[in-house]
Protein backbone atom coordinates (compact mmCIF):
# COMPACT_ATOMS: atom_id res chain seq x y z
CA UNK A 1 0.00 0.00 0.00
CA UNK A 2 1.34 3.31 -1.00
CA UNK A 3 1.54 6.23 1.37
CA UNK A 4 3.02 9.58 0.57
CA UNK A 5 5.03 11.10 3.33
CA UNK A 6 6.83 13.69 1.26
CA UNK A 7 5.66 17.25 1.56
CA UNK A 8 5.11 19.40 -1.43
CA UNK A 9 7.63 22.19 -1.60
CA UNK A 10 6.06 25.19 -3.16
CA UNK A 11 9.32 27.06 -3.19
CA UNK A 12 10.93 24.80 -5.76
CA UNK A 13 9.16 26.23 -8.73
CA UNK A 14 10.91 25.96 -12.06
CA UNK A 15 10.25 29.50 -13.15
CA UNK A 16 9.13 31.97 -10.55
CA UNK A 17 8.57 35.56 -11.46
CA UNK A 18 11.50 37.74 -10.59
CA UNK A 19 10.43 40.29 -7.96
CA UNK A 20 9.87 43.75 -9.35
CA UNK A 21 9.68 42.50 -12.93
CA UNK A 22 6.40 41.87 -14.61
CA UNK A 23 5.74 38.43 -16.00
CA UNK A 24 3.41 36.97 -18.53
CA UNK A 25 0.29 35.08 -17.57
CA UNK A 26 -1.99 32.92 -19.63
CA UNK A 27 -5.56 33.87 -18.84
CA UNK A 28 -8.58 31.65 -19.23
CA UNK A 29 -12.27 31.68 -18.47
CA UNK A 30 -14.09 29.49 -16.01
CA UNK A 31 -17.73 30.14 -15.11
CA UNK A 32 -17.49 33.72 -16.44
CA UNK A 33 -14.53 34.52 -14.23
CA UNK A 34 -11.00 35.19 -15.42
CA UNK A 35 -8.14 33.13 -14.10
CA UNK A 36 -4.44 33.25 -14.86
CA UNK A 37 -1.42 30.96 -14.65
CA UNK A 38 2.19 31.89 -15.18
CA UNK A 39 2.99 31.28 -18.82
CA UNK A 40 6.31 29.64 -18.02
CA UNK A 41 4.45 26.82 -16.29
CA UNK A 42 2.32 26.08 -19.35
CA UNK A 43 3.56 23.26 -21.50
CA UNK A 44 0.80 22.94 -24.00
CA UNK A 45 -2.75 23.96 -24.83
CA UNK A 46 -4.84 21.35 -26.55
CA UNK A 47 -8.46 20.80 -27.47
CA UNK A 48 -10.51 18.58 -25.22
CA UNK A 49 -10.19 14.91 -26.06
CA UNK A 50 -11.64 11.97 -24.14
CA UNK A 51 -9.57 10.61 -21.28
CA UNK A 52 -9.24 7.19 -19.71
CA UNK A 53 -10.98 7.16 -16.34
CA UNK A 54 -8.80 6.20 -13.39
CA UNK A 55 -10.49 4.08 -10.77
CA UNK A 56 -10.35 5.13 -7.13
CA UNK A 57 -9.51 8.70 -7.91
CA UNK A 58 -11.05 11.93 -6.61
CA UNK A 59 -14.03 13.35 -8.48
CA UNK A 60 -12.05 16.27 -9.90
CA UNK A 61 -9.64 13.88 -11.63
CA UNK A 62 -11.19 13.11 -14.98
CA UNK A 63 -8.63 10.51 -15.94
CA UNK A 64 -5.40 10.20 -17.83
CA UNK A 65 -4.28 11.20 -21.28
CA UNK A 66 -1.41 10.28 -23.54
CA UNK A 67 0.83 13.30 -23.86
CA UNK A 68 3.58 12.39 -26.31
CA UNK A 69 4.20 9.03 -24.72
CA UNK A 70 3.77 9.87 -21.08
CA UNK A 71 0.62 9.37 -19.06
CA UNK A 72 -0.71 12.66 -17.74
CA UNK A 73 -3.59 13.13 -15.27
CA UNK A 74 -6.30 15.59 -16.25
CA UNK A 75 -8.22 17.69 -13.72
CA UNK A 76 -11.64 19.22 -14.25
CA UNK A 77 -10.93 22.66 -12.84
CA UNK A 78 -14.61 23.44 -12.31
CA UNK A 79 -14.96 20.42 -10.05
CA UNK A 80 -11.67 21.17 -8.35
CA UNK A 81 -12.73 24.71 -7.54
CA UNK A 82 -16.19 23.54 -6.44
CA UNK A 83 -17.95 25.26 -9.33
CA UNK A 84 -20.95 23.95 -11.20
CA UNK A 85 -20.10 21.44 -13.95
CA UNK A 86 -21.05 22.14 -17.54
CA UNK A 87 -21.01 20.08 -20.72
CA UNK A 88 -17.81 20.29 -22.73
CA UNK A 89 -18.02 22.26 -25.95
CA UNK A 90 -15.79 22.84 -28.92
CA UNK A 91 -14.00 25.67 -27.12
CA UNK A 92 -13.31 23.59 -24.03
CA UNK A 93 -9.54 23.21 -23.78
CA UNK A 94 -6.98 21.38 -21.74
CA UNK A 95 -4.00 23.36 -20.46
CA UNK A 96 -1.05 21.12 -19.67
CA UNK A 97 1.01 22.50 -16.79
CA UNK A 98 4.37 21.56 -15.33
CA UNK A 99 5.03 21.57 -11.60
CA UNK A 100 8.23 20.82 -9.75
CA UNK A 101 7.56 18.57 -6.77
CA UNK A 102 9.75 16.81 -4.26
CA UNK A 103 9.54 13.79 -6.55
CA UNK A 104 10.75 15.71 -9.57
CA UNK A 105 9.00 17.36 -12.47
CA UNK A 106 5.42 16.39 -13.09
CA UNK A 107 2.84 17.35 -15.66
CA UNK A 108 -0.89 17.50 -15.42
CA UNK A 109 -3.69 19.06 -17.37
CA UNK A 110 -6.60 21.29 -16.35
CA UNK A 111 -9.82 21.49 -18.32
CA UNK A 112 -11.15 25.04 -18.60
CA UNK A 113 -14.04 26.68 -20.47
CA UNK A 114 -11.75 28.50 -22.86
CA UNK A 115 -8.46 30.39 -23.06
CA UNK A 116 -8.40 34.12 -23.67
CA UNK A 117 -5.16 36.13 -23.64
CA UNK A 118 -1.58 36.29 -22.58
CA UNK A 119 -1.27 39.32 -20.30
CA UNK A 120 1.57 41.14 -18.64
CA UNK A 121 1.14 41.33 -14.88
CA UNK A 122 3.54 43.32 -12.74
CA UNK A 123 3.96 42.40 -9.06
CA UNK A 124 2.54 45.77 -8.00
CA UNK A 125 -0.76 44.83 -9.65
CA UNK A 126 -1.11 41.74 -7.51
CA UNK A 127 -3.10 41.92 -4.30
CA UNK A 128 -3.57 39.40 -1.58
CA UNK A 129 -6.99 37.81 -2.01
CA UNK A 130 -9.59 38.79 0.61
CA UNK A 131 -10.62 36.16 3.11
CA UNK A 132 -13.96 35.57 1.43
CA UNK A 133 -13.42 35.02 -2.27
CA UNK A 134 -16.00 34.97 -5.03
CA UNK A 135 -17.34 31.58 -4.15
CA UNK A 136 -14.02 30.02 -5.06
CA UNK A 137 -12.03 28.13 -2.48
CA UNK A 138 -9.32 30.71 -1.62
CA UNK A 139 -6.90 27.84 -1.07
CA UNK A 140 -6.12 27.79 -4.79
CA UNK A 141 -5.75 31.52 -5.37
CA UNK A 142 -2.44 33.24 -4.71
CA UNK A 143 -3.56 36.71 -5.55
CA UNK A 144 -5.84 39.01 -7.48
CA UNK A 145 -4.74 41.36 -10.23
CA UNK A 146 -6.63 44.01 -12.16
CA UNK A 147 -5.24 44.07 -15.67
CA UNK A 148 -6.86 45.31 -18.89
CA UNK A 149 -10.21 45.97 -17.20
CA UNK A 150 -10.33 42.41 -16.03
CA UNK A 151 -10.13 40.96 -12.57
CA UNK A 152 -7.68 38.07 -12.77
CA UNK A 153 -7.46 35.34 -10.18
CA UNK A 154 -3.95 33.98 -10.09
CA UNK A 155 -4.14 30.23 -9.72
CA UNK A 156 -1.84 28.37 -7.33
CA UNK A 157 -1.26 25.39 -9.55
CA UNK A 158 1.01 23.66 -7.05
CA UNK A 159 -2.03 23.13 -4.82
CA UNK A 160 -4.20 21.58 -7.51
CA UNK A 161 -2.63 18.15 -7.30
CA UNK A 162 -0.60 18.10 -4.13
CA UNK A 163 0.67 15.12 -2.18
CA UNK A 164 -1.46 15.88 0.83
CA UNK A 165 -4.59 15.82 -1.21
CA UNK A 166 -3.59 12.62 -2.96
CA UNK A 167 -2.72 10.66 0.15
CA UNK A 168 -5.93 11.80 1.85
CA UNK A 169 -7.88 10.49 -1.10
CA UNK A 170 -6.06 7.17 -0.97
CA UNK A 171 -7.00 6.67 2.66
CA UNK A 172 -10.63 7.47 2.02
CA UNK A 173 -10.95 5.07 -0.86
CA UNK A 174 -9.18 2.36 1.08
CA UNK A 175 -11.55 2.82 3.96
CA UNK A 176 -14.38 2.36 1.50
CA UNK A 177 -12.84 -0.81 0.10
CA UNK A 178 -12.28 -2.28 3.53
CA UNK A 179 -15.84 -1.82 4.71
Amino acid sequence: MQTHTEERTTTAEPATATPGKSSQYLTFVLADEHYAVEILRVREIRGWSPVTRLPQSPAFLLGVLNLRGSIVPIIDLRVRLSLESVAYTSVTVTIVLAVESSRGKRNFGIVVDGVSDVLEVSPSDIQVPPEIGKGVNPEFITGLAAVADKMLMLLDIDQLLNEKELSAVVERSEAAVGS
Binding site: P55, N66, S70, I71, P73, S173
Partner: peptide
Amino acid sequence: KSLEENYRKVKGISGATILGGGSVA
Protein backbone atom coordinates in the same frame (compact mmCIF):
# COMPACT_ATOMS: atom_id res chain seq x y z
CA LYS B 1 4.16 3.22 -18.87
CA SER B 2 4.27 4.51 -15.34
CA LEU B 3 1.35 6.28 -13.73
CA GLU B 4 3.57 7.46 -10.93
CA GLU B 5 5.61 9.67 -13.25
CA ASN B 6 2.92 12.34 -13.26
CA TYR B 7 0.37 11.04 -10.79
CA ARG B 8 0.59 8.29 -8.24
CA LYS B 9 0.13 4.56 -7.81
CA VAL B 10 -3.45 3.47 -8.20
CA LYS B 11 -4.58 0.46 -6.25
CA GLY B 12 -5.03 -2.57 -8.46
CA ILE B 13 -3.35 -0.90 -11.44
CA SER B 14 0.31 -1.54 -12.29
CA GLY B 15 0.58 1.05 -15.01
CA ALA B 16 -0.82 2.13 -18.32
CA THR B 17 -0.14 1.66 -21.96
CA ILE B 18 -0.92 3.57 -25.11
CA LEU B 19 -3.13 1.78 -27.59
CA GLY B 20 -2.85 2.00 -31.37
CA GLY B 21 -5.24 4.92 -31.63
CA GLY B 22 -3.35 6.97 -29.05
CA SER B 23 -5.77 6.35 -26.19
CA VAL B 24 -4.64 5.09 -22.80
CA ALA B 25 -5.52 1.68 -21.33
